[in-house]
């Protein structure tokens, strides 16, 4: 049973921001509702006013402009996984979006909701981190830009103030010689919360070495984390495709994650899982990248 709430539908961004300012911490935004409706049913929503964003069409877009990909907070996971722009210029994000829930969840759930919820298991978050995304946060008084890595302050917590709304993400479009990918492990193939997930970005030099790497892990710490030491290991890989070498580099992840035991998995399982996920996804991506060249 859901408690009775005061409900306001915002019809455009301006109205959403006015309602946010008017109600402040008493309100909670509703976007796709795939997470929020479950929380309402479980009595986990402490706010008593809902501001519904699902009719705010201007937040739902994907476009590329002068080498930068812009994704509106209202873009659904289905939009992202089907977008030729995201597939070509930020593959990790398209792959992450395609692994969220099942088709029905992807048709409703939005990237803005996935990020603003600030779950350590949010699938789009590691992808946005390795793509070096910036979050546009808007209020009635203006917009501020926050690098995604600085957005999260703990499980379910972020720098977002009560009168603010996440409106957009933007990141440099990846091009030739750059690759990114995402991998996830859950209790089953689909419709599952990540037990562990990983995203990475590699820039490959002319000598086939990885000259720049960004790696992020989810569900293995209070927030999604960057793995700087593991990134260094990948930049030291020899320019040949070796499973043992890639698996060895990925092993550094053991030292960089701090998972807990919970109902989905034990900490040790999660450490082993991120190593395997990273090694397999990296091997596959490097193999196809070198094969093309």
């Amino acid at each position: 049973m859901i408690k009775e709430l005061e409900y306001h539908a915002a019809h455009d961004l301006k109205e959403a921001l006015e309602l946010a300012e008017q109600f402040g911490p008493r309100k909670r935004f509703l976007s796709g509702g795939t997470d929020m409706t479950v929380r309402l049913k479980e009595g986990l929503v402490k706010e008593d006013i809902i501001v519904d964003l699902s009719h705010v069409a201007e937040l739902r877009f994907v476009r590329e402009e002068s080498g930068v990909v812009h994704v509106g907070a209202g873009a659904t996971h289905a939009d992202l996984s089907a977008s030729p722009i995201v597939r070509q210029h930020g593959l990790a994000l398209a792959l992450a979006a395609s692994r969220v829930g099942g088709p029905q969840i992807r048709n409703m759930g939005t990237i803005g909701g996935n990020v603003a919820n600030a779950s350590p298991a949010g699938d789009t978050i590691p992808a946005l981190i390795v793509l070096d995304a910036v979050v546009s946060i808007t209020s009635r008084t203006g917009t501020r830009e926050v690098p995604i890595i600085d957005f999260f302050t703990g499980p379910g917590r972020s720098v977002l103030a009560a009168e603010e709304l996440v409106t957009e993400f933007h990141f440099p479009a990846t091009g030739p010689g750059e690759l990114s990918a995402f991998g996830k492990l859950g209790a089953r193939q689909a419709m599952t919360i990540s037990t562990a997930n990983v995203a990475f970005y590699f820039r490959i030099g002319g000598d086939r070495r990885i000259v720049e790497a960004r790696i992020a892990f989810g569900s293995v710490a209070p927030t999604v984390v960057r793995a700087h030491k593991t990134e260094q290991m990948f930049c030291q890989l020899p320019p040949l495709l070796s499973w043992d070498a890639i698996r060895g580099a990925a092993q550094m992840a053991w030292k960089e994650v701090a998972p807990i035991d919970d109902l989905r998995a034990t900490a040790v399982y999660r450490k082993e899982a991120v190593v395997g996920l990273l090694a397999e996804a990296a091997y596959e991506a490097l193999a196809s990248c070198w094969h093309e060249r």
Binding site: L30, T34, Q104, I105
Partner: peptide
């Protein structure tokens, strides 16, 4: 396709 148990009727 949507799961109608996750859509609030008002949406």
């Amino acid at each position: 396709s949507v799961t109608s148990c996750l859509v609030l009727a008002v949406q």
